[in-house]
Design a protein around this nucleic acid. Structure first.
Lengths: 228, 228
DNA sequence: GCATATAGTGTCTTAGTGACACTAACAAGG
DNA sequence: CCTTGTTAGTGTCACTAAGACACTATATGC
């Protein structure tokens, strides 16, 4: 049974890049300039380049960098979406990634993309997206939500230094539910992922202590979820 | 930017099929009859057939059925493994699945496979496997272990009716650590996934109550892990 | 009957989250 | 200067689910 016996499906990459701005969970979308689905908003992605890309994660990183100018602090494989009809060009297999970055404004302008911008997760529901990108975003959100309940993953939506209040806001935006500041502080302590810097930051009331991610640490997972 | 601008990678499927026999976690391997890696043990997998297979899960199911005769009760996407050098035929992208079945003896005899048999997870370490299948098995085992700590997934390694003792043995084989029978019974109760049948089964001592998976239920996830 | 093996229960301990009141530190306005 | 409002951080009790383990129950084999 040789390789050539089979017609291979199209293989592509899609990225669901999340961030949180001001308590609002956002996903980065790009407006397609080319067919198919030209003029529609879509997830930044594309074809793997077998010469340049060491592997699929490298391809995902390159596509993100290329189409949005952003380099995520966290990138993880989500799931493969596949089928005969998801791409008008033929049988398609797309590997979706989900990624996290600190919020920054974006402005991209390359050939395949006319615009790139952040969209609130709630606003996206009303949009018409290319391919099955709605479903991909839903699945990515589910996964992120779940991981936010038992891990420190949401820190990747913040700059390297941050306050407990900021992290609390990010987590609440992700899981869509309030948590106890006390519980979060216990986790920050227990995780041993952060150092307490000398600085303090104004916040409208008492100044907040500033935490910093220790370099090279793994994200801690806890044995229990926040109340779900 | 057209499809044809890019040389596409090879896309394949690999299955890590787990079961538990007598307290021993096993993975199903097949002996390759054809190049590359002919004569080596490997994970059952192959190319997707864009005519037959509705999507990648269907392809995984078909490959398993074809190469081992088994139809798993649970099948989930694991992760994509990719790179220039993992397949001598060229740049390769393989989507690995992990699957669970009740233990049964296998004996397959088709063209591409000369043998199919169960291997203890510990015995596999000493084997030489095709491709990067060692790494895939390690990752699949990690994921299964993790899920066994907080979900009822391991029931798919048992027949439709089973006893608490059997489930306990399966879970312990997967996570490599003893758990309290009491804790498991509390979970069985709380999950509401099972009905208690009239039957009892001999087991060397007092007869055990027989549980049965309710048809069509989702696997329950708990908010806490077993001690890890 | 007695030893032994597995099944199932009762109940105290332990650990981590939830709830919430309380103190701390800052700004703005009188 | 003092009061009020706001956010930051602490102290502590309640709640819940798992761990530990003794105890009872029911089977087998001698």
């Amino acid at each position: 049974m040789m390789t050539e016996d089979f017609k291979q499906p199209l293989f592509t990459i899609d990225n669901v890049l999340f961030s949180v701005e001001n308590g609002d969970l956002k996903v980065l979308l790009v407006k397609r300039a080319l067919a198919p689905f030209d003029g529609n908003w879509s997830l930044p992605g594309g074809f793997i380049d077998v010469v340049i890309d060491q592997n699929v994660q490298a391809a995902a990183m390159r596509k993100l960098q290329q189409k949005t100018g952003l380099v995520p602090g966290y990138l993880e494989q989500l799931e493969v979406f596949s089928g005969k009809d998801r791409d008008p060009r033929g049988y398609s297999v797309s590997l979706a990634f989900f990624a996290l970055v600190p919020y920054t404004t974006v402005s991209s302008n390359i050939a395949t993309v006319s615009q790139a911008s952040w969209w609130s997760i709630s606003a996206i529901e009303q949009l018409t997206l290319a391919y099955d990108h709605h479903q991909i975003i839903v699945r990515a959100h589910q996964r992120l939500k779940q991981k936010a309940l038992y891990s420190m993953l949401p820190v990747f939506c913040l700059p390297e230094v941050f306050t407990v209040g900021q992290l609390k806001q990010v987590i609440e935006a992700i899981i869509g539910k309030a948590i106890q500041r006390k519980s979060l502080m216990r986790r920050i302590e227990a995780s041993n992922m952060f150092t307490l810097t000398e600085q303090k930051i104004a916040s409208g009331g008492r100044q907040a202590q500033v935490y910093q991610l220790k370099p090279g640490v793994d994200i801690t997972h806890f044995d229990r979820n926040f109340a779900s």
